[in-house]
C-alpha cells in the first residue's frame, strides 16, 4: 500500500479479543489456587516420567523424539538415523583388485569450491594393463577442515571414485594437520553399509568378454 504523502497514515483497525484484568481480591491475590494448579502440572509430569523410567516404557528417543515424556537422546551412544543421502566424510572407492577407482582426472578438485582437494597424478607401471588407458592418484589429499561438504566432488567424479556415503562426521582431532586426510586413510573408510567398492559396476580395460571388434581380431 503506497503511503499517502499528506495527512495521517490510515492503518487497518486491529481486531482482537479483550482480556479482562485479573481480579484483585484477597483470594486471587493469595494465588493459592494458581500455585496448586502449577504444582498439579509439574507433579503430573513427575509421576508419569518416574513411572516410565522405572518401568522402562519411556518413548523411543531415537524414533519418537516428539512424543511426550523423557525423550533425551544420549548422543554418542544413540544417534538419530541420518537421511539416506547424508554427506559424511569422503571415501575413495576400490576396484575389485583393491586399487583405487580414481583415475586422477582432477575433476573433483576443479569442482571443489573450497579448493580442499589436492591430487598428484601418476602413470601405472610398465606391464600393468591399465597403463595407457588410465592414470592413478599418487597423492590424494583432502583437507577436511577446508571442506564445506557440498558434495560437488561426488557429483563431478566420472568414475564413482569418491563418495560421501560413510555416514561419519568429521571427527575431532588435536591438530590441524590431522584433518588432512591422505589417500590410504580415505581408502580405508567404508560406506555406511560397510562396502569398500561401489554399487556401480565397472569394466577394466582389456577385460575379457568385452564386446566389439579389437585390432587383434581384424585381418589386415
Amino acid at each position: 500500500m503506497p503511503l499517502p504523502l499528506e495527512g495521517p497514515v490510515q492503518y487497518d483497525r486491529v481486531k482482537g479479543t479483550k482480556i479482562s484484568k485479573p481480579g484483585r481480591n484477597a483470594v486471587q491475590q493469595a494465588y493459592v489456587k494458581d500455585i496448586a494448579d502449577g504444582l498439579a502440572i509439574t507433579m503430573h509430569h513427575f509421576f508419569k516420567n518416574t513411572k516410565e523410567m522405572i518401568r522402562g516404557t519411556r518413548p523411543d528417543a531415537v524414533n519418537d523424539p516428539m512424543e511426550d515424556g523423557v525423550t533425551t537422546l544420549e548422543y554418542p551412544f544413540q544417534k538419530r538415523p541420518y537421511p539416506e543421502r547424508f554427506r559424511g566424510v569422503h571415501r575413495l572407492t576400490h576396484r575389485a583388485d583393491g586399487s583405487p577407482r580414481c583415475v586422477a582426472c582432477l575433476c573433483c578438485s576443479t569442482a571443489c569450491p573450497a579448493q580442499c582437494i589436492y591430487i598428484e597424478a601418476g602413470e601405472y607401471p610398465e606391464g600393468d594393463k591399465k597403463r595407457g588407458y588410465e592414470k592413478y592418484p599418487v597423492k590424494f589429499v583432502i583437507d577436511e577442515l577446508r571442506c564445506i561438504f557440498c558434495g560437488f566432488c561426488v557429483e563431478a567424479c566420472p568414475c564413482d571414485a569418491i563418495r560421501m556415503d560413510t555416514g561419519m562426521h568429521p571427527q575431532p582431532y588435536d591438530s590441524r594437520d590431522q584433518f588432512v586426510f591422505g589417500k590410504s586413510l580415505l581408502m580405508s573408510f567404508v560406506s555406511a553399509d560397510g562396502e569398500q567398492q561401489s554399487e556401480n559396476p565397472r569394466r577394466e580395460p582389456g577385460e575379457k568378454g568385452f564386446a566389439g571388434i579389437t585390432r587383434l581380431g581384424q585381418h589386415h
Partner: peptide, 10 residues
C-alpha cells in the same frame, strides 16, 4: 533428578 523428571529429561 526430580526436576529432571518434572521437565521431561534425564
Amino acid at each position: 533428578r526430580q526436576s529432571a523428571m518434572m521437565q521431561d529429561r534425564f
